[in-house]
């Protein structure tokens, strides 16, 4: 039987990979996917605790996280399309409008 610690370690590793992706990649869409990966790592933690503690609220919370992730993906990708239409790029180093 796998212990709770193993699930938490997998989750920590997944979250770190996602965070590393957000830091190193320069493509807005890939940064998006890395955020999804981090959300999934958190979901794994929630489900693991929910099942080991016998408390069901965690699974409902995961359901809501998935809803928000879907909404975030839709809006975020629409923003990426709008940016691409204006600047012909999604490379985040080229998007420095706020620098003045």
């Amino acid at each position: 039987m796998t212990s709770l610690a193993n699930y938490l370690i997998i989750s920590a590793i997944l979250f770190s990979i996602g965070a590393a992706g957000v830091l190193f990649r320069r493509n807005a869409i890939i940064i998006f996917m890395c955020i999804e990966l981090m959300l999934n790592a958190v979901n794994l933690t929630l489900i693991a605790f929910s099942q080991f503690l016998g408390e069901q609220s965690g699974q409902v919370l995961v359901f809501f996280v998935m809803t928000v992730a879907a909404a975030e993906a839709a809006v975020g990708l629409a923003i990426v399309i709008a940016i691409y239409r204006n600047k012909e790029t999604v490379h985040i180093d080229d998007l420095n409008l706020l620098k003045g």
Partner: peptide
């Protein structure tokens, strides 16, 4: 809201 927002933005 997200669906409407995405359509408006894109």
């Amino acid at each position: 809201t997200a669906a409407v927002g995405a359509i408006v933005l894109a």
